[in-house]
Each structure stands twice: as C-alpha cells, then as structure tokens.
Design a protein around this nucleic acid. Sequence first.
DNA 1: CTGTTAGCGCCTTCAC
DNA 2: GTGAAGGCGCTAACAG
Lengths: 346, 346
Amino acid sequence: MKKATIHEIAKALNIDSSTVSRALNNNSRVAKKTKEKVFNKAKELGYKPNLLASNLRKNRSNTIGVVVPRISRYFFSTIIAGIEEVAFKEGFNVVISQSLEQVKREKKIMDNFVSNRVDGVLMSIAWESNDFQHLQNLEGLGIPLVFLDRHPASLESCNKVIIDDYKGACEAVDHLIKSGCKKIAHFAGPQFLEIYKSRLKGYSDTLKKNKLKSEPKLIVASHLMKDDGFNIMRDLLEKHPDIDGVFSANDEAAVGAIKFLKKIGKKVPEDISIVGFSNDPLSEVVEPPLTTVDQFGAEMGKKACELLIQNIKHQKDDPFQYQTIILSPKLIERESSRGVIERRIN
Amino acid sequence: MKKATIHEIAKALNIDSSTVSRALNNNSRVAKKTKEKVFNKAKELGYKPNLLASNLRKNRSNTIGVVVPRISRYFFSTIIAGIEEVAFKEGFNVVISQSLEQVKREKKIMDNFVSNRVDGVLMSIAWESNDFQHLQNLEGLGIPLVFLDRHPASLESCNKVIIDDYKGACEAVDHLIKSGCKKIAHFAGPQFLEIYKSRLKGYSDTLKKNKLKSEPKLIVASHLMKDDGFNIMRDLLEKHPDIDGVFSANDEAAVGAIKFLKKIGKKVPEDISIVGFSNDPLSEVVEPPLTTVDQFGAEMGKKACELLIQNIKHQKDDPFQYQTIILSPKLIERESSRGVIERRIN
DNA sequence: CTGTTAGCGCCTTCAC
DNA sequence: GTGAAGGCGCTAACAG
C-alpha cells in the first residue's frame, strides 16, 4: 500500500530526486528527454504527489477556505458555485465548511483552516456571531479575509462584497405599496448583522416616505427559518388581522408564512402580498409565485473570490487596503402570474 | 507574520521540542506541570499546530473526502449533514467537493483527495460516469471508498449505502394507480446508474402487476433537471394528451413538469397526478403539495460515514469485506391537501 | 541542465 | 519523565 515517491522514480532512472521534482513541476531547465522519462516512470509506478509535503515545504496550500452558515440554502450554494468558478480558473482549490449558524463551529473551522494553512478565507458569518476575535486573529496570521453578504455590524475595516440591502428593501416595500398594501409587516433578521439592519431601515424609510406609519409591533425579528415565518405570520395575524403585506428579510421565512396562510385559507397575493429577499428557484412554482429580491449569489461569489485572490497575491508588496464591493439587487416580480392583482376590500 | 512552532515554545521554556510535542498531544508520560507550562506558553505565542507537518509525519490526515454531484440539491445537502454529524463525533474532518455531474471533475477531485491523503472517500457518482478507473485506483492506494445512493451499475464488489429504489418506485406507481391513473408516464434517469434502472423496473413491474400496459413511448430518460421535466411533459402531452399520471425519478423534474402544467392551465392532481423521488422541503408549499418518495438523506449519510470509518479503522487487520446497506424509502402523500382527489372524466 | 545540501514542522523511536 | 536523533516527501538555494 506504500505510495511511490520522487525518490523511487529517481532511483529507477538513476537521477537525483531534485531533478525528478523539477521535471514533475515542468521546470523549464530540465531536458525534454528527462522529463519524458520521468513522466513515464511516474505513471508506471502510479506516482501521486504528496501535497502535504509539498505544501509544508512551500508554506502555502493553494487553497481557499469558505465558511457559510449552511450549504443547503440556495443563496449560499450559488455563492459557492461562483467562488469555485473563479478559484479553479486561478488554480486554487476550495474547501467548503458550514458553521450551521454557530459561532462555536465557526471558531473550530477557522482553527482548522489556519492549521491547514489555507491561503485565504471567504466567509458569511453565523448569525449568533457577536464575538469576532477569531476573525481578527486571521489577519495577524497573514491570512486575508473577505466577507460575503453577511458581515459584522461592528467591524469597519475589512474586505467585503455585499449587495445594496437598503435599496433592495426599499424596492420591495415600494412594490408592496404600489400593489395596494396599506399595512405591511416586516420579518426582520438578527440585528447583529449589518444586512438585516439595512433591510429594516429600508423598510421603515420607505413606509415613511409613502406616508405610512412604521409600527414597531409589525416588525418581528427572528432567525428567519421556515418555522419562524409560519409562527410569526400566525401571531401577527391574530393581533393584527388587517395586515395585507409582508416584507420578509429572506425567502425561507416567506415560504413559512405562505404555508400558514394556505392552512387558514387566505389567498396570496389577493389577501396578503409577500416579498422576500433571496431567490430560490422554487420561488416560481410555489403558489403563488413568490416575488423576490435577487441577490445574485454567483456574482457575489465571483467578485469575492477575485478580491481575495488579489489580496493573496499582493500580500507582501502592498500595504493592506480594505475594499468594499456593493452589487445591486434586483426585484423579480412574479405575483401577477394570474393577471392583475385584485386586492379584496375587507 | 511567521507562525510559532513547537521549537519556539521549547526554546522559551528550555525544554526539548519533543516534550512540547508530547505535551500538546496530551501524552500521558509528561509531567502535569510541564504540560501546563507548555499550554500557557503556546497560548501566549499564539501557537497554531501545523497539520500539514503533522499529517505528513503520520501519513494520514484525519479527513474524509466527500464527492457529490451538487451540494445545492436538497437530498445531497442532507446527506452531507448526516456525514458531518458522524464524522465530527468520531474526530474526523470532512472535505466536500462537487463533481457538477462531470467525470472530468470527479477525476480531478479524486487526484486531489489522494494527494492530500484523505483517509477515506464517500461518493455519489456523476451521471455521465461510465469509466470507473479512477475509483478502482483508490483501493489500490489503500483508501477505502463507500458509495452513497448513486453507484456504478457495473461495479459488483464495493461498499454502498443505498435505498430500496425498486420498492420506492413500486409504491409510487401503486399510489398513482390507486388515485385512479390509467396512463402513467415515467421520467427516467441515466441508465448507467443502478438507482435509475431500479426505479424504471419498479415502474414497469407495477404497471404489469396491475394489468396496465408499460409503453416504451411513455418512458423518457433525461438528466432530470427542471427544464427536462418541463420539456418532457410538454412533448409527452402533445403526443399523448390522455396521460393522467407521472412517476418522476426525481423531484426536480417533477417541479419542471408542474411548471409546464401550470402554464397550460392543467390542474394537478385533478388532471394529472405526479409523484417524484426525493423530498425537498419546498415540496409541501409547491402547488399542489407534491407527493414524494423520501430517501432519508441524513440517515444515508450517517450510515455511510459509519461504514467508512469502520473500514478506515480496520483497514490493516481485516481482509477487505464489502458491505451493502439498504434503507427503506417512504412515500409521503400530500396530494390530498384539498381533500379527496376527484379525477376528471374526459 | 543536473546534483548536493538543507530544511519545512512535527512525531516517534530509542536511550537515559 | 525527558532529550537526542532521524525522517515523513518535497523544494529551493547553490554549485557545477
């Protein structure tokens, strides 16, 4: 079961292992003939390079570490697709880990990344995060970090790629108002995270701009899971049966709300209109087709990866310069698949 | 930016680095006092173990490699959740890679796994796979392999954790027949894969058992993407407008079919009933709530990971003994959310 | 173009 | 309980 090494190739060919190493790495100052011999012998012996040794020697792993809350969320898996596209093109490997929204796991993952000498880290932080020591340590170790979408509200100087959450929220609420909604609730996210703060602000500001009251009772913060959406919708309707619109800070909670509304026989969007952030492909076959704010995950992943690689490459010569890249979200309307919405008059 | 090593800890404490190594690994024959001193100094210096070096020395990485076609599919992300649960409990790290259904990428990933000395591999193969050399090489290198769900039709002797696809298909088609369907189509998957062969066989056999004709024209093989479902449904209905049931080998194609039916104003399940394999959580809020065959991804992931770890641990002493673990799928009915189905009489 | 030498950081005998 | 020595497999000077 012992794997072949460059030394065995060297011995078999009566040359030095350093020449073999150079040949395998396609170094220009190795004779063509030698290279061929080496390649053939390598194949013959079933040689597989040991990257552990190589990376140890070179003190870098050619690997980018990615941390997301969970890969099962469509938004994050599109982000990952974008990251991989750029990373592979640039010759980097990608290691994906999920924090499952737990800081504890986030820290372990970071430790692991450091111990395995990843060259850089891309991350969307867990929403229970309120302690960012583990992130600041990274830079002390010379490992560049770029935040993707979710970033700490308390951290000013950092690299990040985000969408314009404020603008997206404004458009979403605008859309609800234009559809005739008079009383719009907001499913808010954890306020540790800047993105959810911005979405809330966009909601409040847009209501005010349209001369509608922004009532604290209609704003409910949660972790925005499907069950949260279900329960919040139920509780809100109990106290405020005249709610006719919901702006959810993500689509998962929106889906939960729809589930509840379906259960009690309320029609969407005739009785209640819903708009959510993120854009799962199933949104269009949910009934009703859900209007969403598209965050362009793949684009974000690509941009973030490019920024990170840039940081990795210019780590030494350049003074550290933090960048923020802001993408524009896009409202995708799907409510009118049945034609014009006719809002019922209660 | 240079990271602390055990030698620096040793020097600072005037002891040997081998003692530091033992202390950090909690070796029993190191004095308590020494251990404490070492731990403190390690923390003080911000010491992070270099796993590259450690793994190189030990010639194993404590890591399990996982390859799935795509992490964005709900079934695979639940599998991963199950794998991680078991792996972490047993002290293994998990590296996730997606083949994006391409053998080319599958091979690259395998090479990478070997080069990074993963201790074992869990995989669901790409559906264009018809060349399995890269998989058989693994065993030659002493890296145990367990297939998960998707496995090569041509490989007899291997470890695998699968569900009873045949039984699931039978139940699905039975359900359609009991709902009154007379003409049932099948969205089949690539026949390289055993799972899709079994699902097709379950479909045919159940039709025959119920004295219904199994017509080749109603069986369409594809990659079962959403668009495939959409297009196949359209083409089938054009030629056979009297189709009243569909058994889809996965839920994604089923969703595509629903999208098409919605577009042309056909009602599901009144006009056409649909059942699909896999059980995405959105199935219940799609309209109509989709009846599915649940594959219990997390269970499969757990079992597979257990089997793999068992293989890793007993690699030396035991003769290689292949195992097959078969789980039972479960039909989850959701069609009757509107009450009893009343099938229209054309 | 190729060989020599010297580690990367850690672990594991083998001594004492 | 601790130290000394050697090497995991590879690469990067430095010679020639």
